[in-house]
């Protein structure tokens, strides 16, 4: 008798599970930030994007996360219609705006997974970055191209080369061991910028290091970066 009751209650429990739960979202929306096909690299966890959904009586984004340092994003969603936005003032780039000046949204219709690259206009691009290790130094040469030259144009505050022992490299002091800075005013020829930094002692020792170049635009909080490179010392 007891066993029967136990089996009965257990099977009731199983039934309840099936009836009460929804399937998790399976449609993946992913992509990256691009300018004319070239990826835009930013700082890890600092440039956010929001997804909004209609019709549930709540305001506020349903997804509120940020881009990776390579400028990629991915999010699992239910099928349906969403609006994607990069909030005002975020990112080292201009996002398209409504005539009123507010950031405009992209309508995303999810019906299965899809790839969606986000076209933005950066203030500057770091072109042809060459980062090499030579002896105890890491040397970088690159070009700076001013992309926005109209009334929205901004000056370069500084460019840095950052080194870190992990693949996360940025201006955040947790993500770089050492850096060398060149102020915007000290850049003579934007088509030929060279920076050099001495590799610090890494504890525990490792024979490789990660590097990338970051550019800070005056009056814009987020920096734009070159892709991370791994250098063998």
């Amino acid at each position: 008798m007891k066993i029967i009751i136990a089996i009965l209650s257990f099977s009731l429990f199983l039934c309840a599970c099936e009836k009460d739960n929804y399937d998790p979202p399976t449609a993946q929306l992913s992509g990256k930030l691009v300018y004319q096909g070239e990826p835009i690299n930013v700082e890890f966890n600092q440039v956010p994007y929001n997804l909004f959904q209609f019709g549930f009586g709540k305001t506020g984004p349903v997804s509120n996360t940020s881009f990776t340092q390579e400028g990629t994003y991915s999010v699992l969603l239910f099928n349906g219609t969403y609006k994607l936005i990069i909030p005002a003032g975020q990112g080292p780039f201009l996002w398209k705006k409504t005539p009123g000046g507010a950031p405009d949204s992209i309508t995303v219709t999810m019906n299965g997974s899809q790839q969606l690259d986000l076209e933005v206009t950066p203030y500057y691009m770091i072109r042809t970055p060459q980062i090499t290790a030579a002896g105890n130094n890491v040397n970088a040469t690159f070009k700076l191209e001013k992309v926005i030259t109209d009334a929205n144009a901004k000056n370069i505050e500084h460019v840095n080369i950052y080194l870190n022992k992990t693949a996360f490299v940025s201006g955040n002091s947790s993500y770089n061991l050492v850096s060398t800075r060149r102020l915007g005013a000290d850049i003579v020829d934007p088509n030929n910028v060279a920076l050099s930094v001495v590799v610090p002692t890494i504890i525990p020792a490792q024979n490789y290091i990660f590097a990338r170049i970051g550019l800070k635009i005056a009056g814009v909080e987020d920096m734009i970066f070159s892709p991370v490179v791994k250098l063998t010392l």
Partner: peptide, 14 residues
């Protein structure tokens, strides 16, 4: 924000 849609968000966050 969800309880009161009249409240605007702070700038430069998310």
């Amino acid at each position: 924000l969800a309880n009161n849609p009249k409240i605007v968000r702070q700038p430069n966050q998310d």
